[in-house]
């Protein structure tokens, strides 16, 4: 069944977006990305190690921009200025690539988004021609503001980054999705395949995760599990659930019983 996800003019078959942090090595990263079926893969931008040997392996040799849509993030930025600067570096690094994941964090303990700075950075980036996918809290009014200013996807948290607590406020996600015209992608908090399925059954357009896969005992197997969980949740949503009822309703016919 063709049910693609559209982001910034591109079409994706997978609704799972994954991060590349916290893996044992680049080979494990490559295998997990492959097993997940993800087509959009996030990376961070950091200072190059100046003492390195020529030919030292590079992440983008394993997860290549010709095969995947690379989504550079602004993780680690705690103000709008640093986030915008990081996006400009990413654009140069990726040869003019415009799609970025904006996240401006509030503090180290919660990594909760700083909304004032997020909104300011989003506006600057949109004005500068970036396609902005924006990490935010699950406030429907903030989500609407970010959509209205031209962000190509709004990405509310399910729960805190790296917490694995799942979607703690499904009602807020429903409020956001009811109004949204851009894809709503749950970013952060998913811990298990069932968390991912539930989020997709709610009607989220996709899920971005990193720790749930990278910190699993077997990351490559978990990547495969998450792929299936997201497909199951999406198909379940499209299929439409049965009505709930308070009392039993037999699945086998009541007539023709032997007596």
């Amino acid at each position: 069944m063709s049910d693609p996800l559209h982001i910034a003019g591109k079409t994706y078959q997978s609704r799972l977006l994954i991060g590349t942090g916290k893996y044992k090595d680049f080979e494990e990263t490559r295998q997990a990305v492959e097993a997940s079926g993800a087509e959009i893969v996030t990376v961070a931008v950091r200072r190059t190690n100046l003492g390195q040997e020529p030919g030292e392996p590079n992440l983008l040799d394993f997860v290549t921009p010709d095969k995947y849509t690379i989504l550079p993030n602004t993780a680690g930025c705690f103000n709008a200025e640093d986030a915008v600067r990081t996006c400009k570096l990413a654009r140069e690094l990726l040869d003019g690539h415009k799609l970025v994941k904006l996240e401006v964090l509030g503090d180290q303990k919660t990594l909760y988004p700083n909304i004032a700075h997020t909104v300011r950075a989003a506006q600057q980036l949109v004005d500068d021609g970036f396609d902005v996918m924006v990490y935010t809290n699950d406030d429907p009014i903030v989500a609407r503001e970010l959509e209205d200013m031209g962000c190509v996807s709004v990405m509310p948290l399910g729960s805190l980054i790296g917490s694995g607590l799942g979607v703690l406020n499904p009602h807020n996600l429903l409020l956001i999705m009811e109004e949204a015209k851009v894809p709503i992608i749950v970013d952060a908090g998913v811990g298990t395949p069932s968390d991912a399925t539930l989020a997709m059954e709610l009607g989220c357009d996709g899920i971005l995760m990193n720790s749930a896969i990278a910190h699993a005992r077997n990351p490559v197997l978990m990547a495969s599990a998450m792929k299936k969980a997201i497909e199951a949740g999406r198909e379940g949503l499209l299929a439409g659930r049965m009505p709930k009822r308070a009392f039993a309703n037999p699945s086998s016919p009541s007539e023709g019983l032997v007596s």
Binding site: G19, T20, G21, K22, Y23, T29, T42, V43, A44, V45, R46, R47, T48, L50, N58, L59, L60, I70, P72, N73, A75, L89, A90, L93, L94, I161, L208, M209, N210, S211
Partner: peptide
């Protein structure tokens, strides 16, 4: 001067 590259991140 700042020289940056892509590394793993979520």
């Amino acid at each position: 001067v700042e020289i940056v590259h892509a590394i793993g991140g979520g």
